[in-house]
Simulated scan of single mutants.
Amino acid sequence: MTTTAPALDLTADPVELTAALVDVPSVSGDEGALAGAIEHALRTQAPHLEVVRSGASVLARTNLGRPRRVLLAGHIDTVPIAGNVPSRRDGDTLFGCGTSDMKAGDAVIAHLAVTLTEPAHDLTVVFYDCEEIEAARNGLGRIERELPEWLRADLAILGEPTDGMVEAGCQGTLRAEVRTMGRRAHSARSWLGDNAIHRAGQVLSRLAAYRPRRVDIDGCEYREGLQAVKVTGGVAGNVVPDEAVVTVNFRFAPDRSADQAVAHVREVLDGFDVEVTDLSPGALPGLAAPAAQEFLAATGATPRAKYGWTDVSRFAALGVPAINYGPGDPNLAHTREEHVDVARIREATEVLRRFLTG
């Protein structure tokens, strides 16, 4: 589905701008109309910005020669619409697909990019595509390959939903398939076979007995978790199965590297066939960076660990300190009733404005 987007007024109240962004459907892979509208608005309403387009991503930046550069990033795609577009307002609540994750954050970023013509820090804004689907299609990966200089900064702030809190770093994530093998036989003569599903019970027992770490990094507590998330196996109702697969997910603290995470899972499940199918490293908090300290002072908030993986990991891998800060509630992301408190949108706008103007 391709939608023709209306003209956007990026100088408008960020609450109204959030509604306008929600009203342009932008399910992952179909962000072109919204990207085009954002690009046109930046080019016509922000002559102080250099603007480029990369696929369905739009980037803009100041070049004022400031001693530090701050990058604000937000993905413009959403999960599939669930009868929640167009947006609707009910008192102090704005409902709609992407309100929380993360068009409210996008609206704040776009509004500040246009209205702050003399920021205390040079500013880069990145609106990117395909965050909600497989990592290989993520727009930041393409930008890193084609326009790497655009991702250089002293601090990156991702507008991911944090309910107005500062969430530092992120967990790493690993998925693996643990395969158990047996011998197929007729269930009436089960003693002739070896039940692979029963063998998988040993895998589940180890996972049930696993005691995850809690790790404090820069005052943020990261909690690890190793879980079975899927079990498959079986041939027919009268056959002893000869194969079973337990899919596990390991959410690991950012003090572990990706290789260390793999080694840990293999150690826990020693003796079983473990095949890693997906792996993304975490990101350390990066709170010691001077720009991060300035931002924390501007918010007055106590940072907490980010539970889950976000694109701060990509910036950390580039050596850019990165944090998550946005007006949306992460618990509402991807739900039919997704919504955002309009007061959070205005609060986030003012906090970032205060920080960016020094």
Results as ranks from 00 to 15, higher is better:
Asp90Pro: 03
Gly91Ser: 07
Arg88Asp: 02
Gly83Ile: 06
Ala120Val: 00
Asn84Tyr: 13
Glu131Leu: 10
Phe95Trp: 12
Leu94Glu: 00
Asn84His: 10
Val125Ser: 08
Asp129Asn: 15
Gly105Tyr: 07
Val125Phe: 11
Glu131Tyr: 12
Thr124Met: 12
Thr115Val: 12
His121Gln: 09
Val85Lys: 13
Phe127Met: 03
Asp90Phe: 11
Leu123Tyr: 06
Thr99Glu: 06
Leu94Ile: 02
Cys97Trp: 03
Met102Ile: 02
Pro86Asn: 05
Thr99Phe: 06
Pro86Arg: 10
Leu112Tyr: 11
His111Ser: 10
Tyr128Leu: 03
Met102Thr: 02
Val125Thr: 08
Asp122Pro: 14
Asp92His: 13
Pro119Val: 01
Cys97Asp: 01
Ala110Ser: 04
Glu131Ala: 13
Asp92Ile: 01
Glu132Met: 07
Asp122Ile: 09
Val114Phe: 09
Cys97Met: 03
Gly98Cys: 06
Thr115Trp: 14
Phe127Pro: 06
Lys103Arg: 15
Asp129Ala: 15
Gly105Asp: 04
Val125His: 12
Arg89Ala: 01
Val114Trp: 11
Gly91Ala: 04
Thr117Leu: 08
Thr99Lys: 10
Thr93Ser: 09
Cys130Ile: 02
Phe127Thr: 01
Lys103Val: 02
Leu94Phe: 05
Glu131His: 14
Asp129Met: 13
Asn84Ile: 05
Ser87His: 12
Leu116Tyr: 04
Phe95Ser: 02
Asp122Arg: 08
Asp122Val: 10
Val126Ala: 11
Arg89Lys: 05
Val126Ser: 11
Ala104Lys: 07
Val114Ala: 03
Glu132Arg: 11
Cys130Leu: 13
Arg89Gln: 05
Asp101Ile: 01
Asn84Leu: 12
Asp129Pro: 08
Thr117Cys: 08
Glu118Trp: 10
Pro86Gln: 06
Thr124Gly: 09
Gly96Ile: 00
Cys97Leu: 03
Pro119Thr: 00
Leu123Arg: 10
Glu134Pro: 07
Ser100Met: 10
Thr115Met: 13
Ala135Ser: 07
Asp129Ile: 06
Tyr128Asp: 02
Glu118Arg: 15
Gly105Met: 05
His121Cys: 08
Pro86Thr: 02
Val85Phe: 10
Asn84Ser: 08
Pro119Ile: 01
Ser87Gln: 09
Ala82Thr: 02
Asn84Asp: 10
Arg88Lys: 12
Val125Tyr: 13
Phe95His: 14
Ser100Ala: 15
Lys103His: 09
His121Asn: 12
Phe127Asp: 01
Ser100Pro: 13
Glu132Trp: 11
Phe127Cys: 07
His121Ser: 10
Val125Asn: 12
Phe127His: 08
Asp101Met: 03
Thr115Ile: 06
Val126Thr: 13
Lys103Asp: 04
Gly98Ile: 03
Thr117Ala: 08
Glu134Phe: 14
Leu112Asp: 01
Tyr128Cys: 04
Asn84Glu: 04
Pro86Asp: 03
Glu132Lys: 12
Asp90His: 14
Lys103Glu: 03
Leu112Phe: 09
Thr117Ile: 09
